[in-house]
Computed example of a mutant assay.
Amino acid sequence: MNKISKMTEFSATLPREKQCVFVVSTGRTGTQFFVKNAPSIIEDCVSFHEPDTIWLSRPYEWYSKARLVGLRQLTIDKVLPARSLRSLSNARARREITDDAAMESLRSLRKRLIEEAQGSVVLEANAAYFGLIDLIPKLFPSANIVFIIRDPRDWVRSMMNKSFAVVGPYATFDVRCWIPKARLAASQFREDAACPLWRRMSRFEKLCWLWNCENSFALECASKTDHVRICRFEDIFGGSSRKEAFCDLLEFLTRFPNGERAQWHLDEKLLSRKVHSTASGSFPSWPEWEQKLVMQMHTRCHGLMDKFGYGQELEWNHRIEKE
């Protein structure tokens, strides 16, 4: 066998580098849409939605997820930064873990899952990556990432409604709030203006704080890598230009840093379908909010709202100027 044949044989035995797409947000931003539809949009794509998170409302997923990542990772490991993406992101946001340590944890949590996935393109949608965006490309050099931000008035409303009113962040049965540091809180940040007020803040105001905290840190991480595209939820899922915006995003996500490209085709009808929506419920949309809620959101979120063009309505500005 000549030298060239030997080299060809050797290269054929090497594992092919996976092309990865990570859809990251703070939740309630249509991430399940990507997971449900990615295999029909992107050629030879396999997708996962928060594979190491169990939802009490979806027991039908427990068995398959336990087989995928192991029962321990779904349960007791959730409180350990080294064994949980969410706890890892929270620890980074609090500046309690070094980048090297975070990288090692991320490697142990995801390397095998991605490499063994049955598809040349692996898409994972997971809100727990909000504090790890800059580390993802170091572990997966051929990864592309989209970070999706949503109008906090709609995001908080979604969190306040339906099942999230009971089990969502800071709700009565939010298990993470029962475990020290498993849920971010202003009381964990001494320099935060909300720190001394935290215990007296309503759930609504705490959610406003959380939207600002997680999105701010995610954007800080995103600024450290060229592998990420920042998108507004409203641009890719609403408005007259949503198809153009979504196609532009797909072009970015399927042109990988190693030069490879995945083929894709988008059926425009998909964009009109909602996945796991909680738009309806007892908590109203912002025009019906009492003045106190308007000012609480403005106080906690106005910086990022201005940056992304939220809160430009005359009615919103009029209510703020009343104070």
Rank of each mutant, 00 (worst) to 15 (best):
116 E>R: 14
3 K>I: 14
156 V>N: 00
25 S>M: 03
36 K>D: 14
255 R>Y: 09
224 K>F: 04
55 W>V: 07
152 P>H: 00
17 E>I: 12
51 P>S: 09
265 H>F: 08
173 F>R: 10
217 F>K: 02
299 T>V: 05
33 F>W: 15
2 N>C: 11
256 F>D: 13
144 N>S: 07
210 L>S: 03
28 R>H: 02
156 V>I: 11
209 W>K: 04
44 D>Y: 11
110 R>Q: 14
241 S>K: 15
74 L>R: 00
110 R>V: 02
60 Y>S: 14
180 P>Y: 05
282 S>M: 07
224 K>H: 09
294 V>D: 00
73 Q>K: 15
234 E>R: 00
56 L>A: 10
208 C>R: 01
33 F>D: 08
212 N>I: 00
297 M>S: 00
188 Q>D: 15
99 D>Y: 10
176 R>M: 12
126 N>T: 04
190 R>I: 10
9 E>D: 14
166 V>H: 08
35 V>W: 13
105 S>Q: 10
275 V>T: 11
238 G>N: 07
198 W>V: 12
110 R>I: 02
244 E>Y: 09
163 S>L: 12
192 D>Y: 05
301 C>A: 14
164 F>L: 11
108 S>E: 15
85 L>N: 09
2 N>R: 11
55 W>D: 08
159 M>A: 10
14 L>K: 13
87 S>H: 03
112 R>Y: 06
5 S>P: 03
222 A>N: 09
258 N>F: 09
102 A>I: 10
25 S>I: 00
2 N>K: 13
175 V>D: 10
65 K>N: 09
136 I>F: 05
75 T>F: 00
63 Y>M: 12
316 W>S: 07
172 T>G: 10
317 N>S: 01
134 D>H: 14
178 W>R: 15
49 H>I: 07
215 N>L: 04
58 R>P: 01
286 W>F: 01
57 S>Q: 11
23 V>A: 06
146 V>L: 03
206 K>F: 01
47 S>E: 11
307 K>D: 03
9 E>Y: 14
258 N>W: 08
206 K>V: 02
175 V>K: 12
137 P>R: 07
101 A>K: 13
20 C>M: 12
203 R>W: 04
88 L>F: 12
150 R>N: 01
172 T>R: 14
134 D>Y: 06
249 L>E: 09
318 H>F: 09
251 E>P: 02
162 K>E: 15
111 K>V: 12
85 L>G: 07
77 D>F: 05
93 A>R: 12
7 M>W: 12
215 N>C: 06
259 G>V: 08
62 W>T: 05
323 E>M: 06
129 Y>I: 02
283 F>G: 01
161 N>K: 09
3 K>G: 03
230 I>W: 03
46 V>P: 01
187 S>K: 14
170 Y>W: 01
78 K>C: 00
88 L>P: 07
289 W>N: 00
210 L>V: 02
307 K>L: 10
219 L>H: 05
210 L>P: 06
266 L>E: 06
2 N>M: 09
172 T>E: 15
235 D>C: 08
128 A>G: 06
296 Q>H: 09
91 A>K: 10
80 L>Y: 04
198 W>I: 13
180 P>V: 05
95 R>D: 14
39 P>N: 06
307 K>W: 01
70 G>C: 01
57 S>G: 02
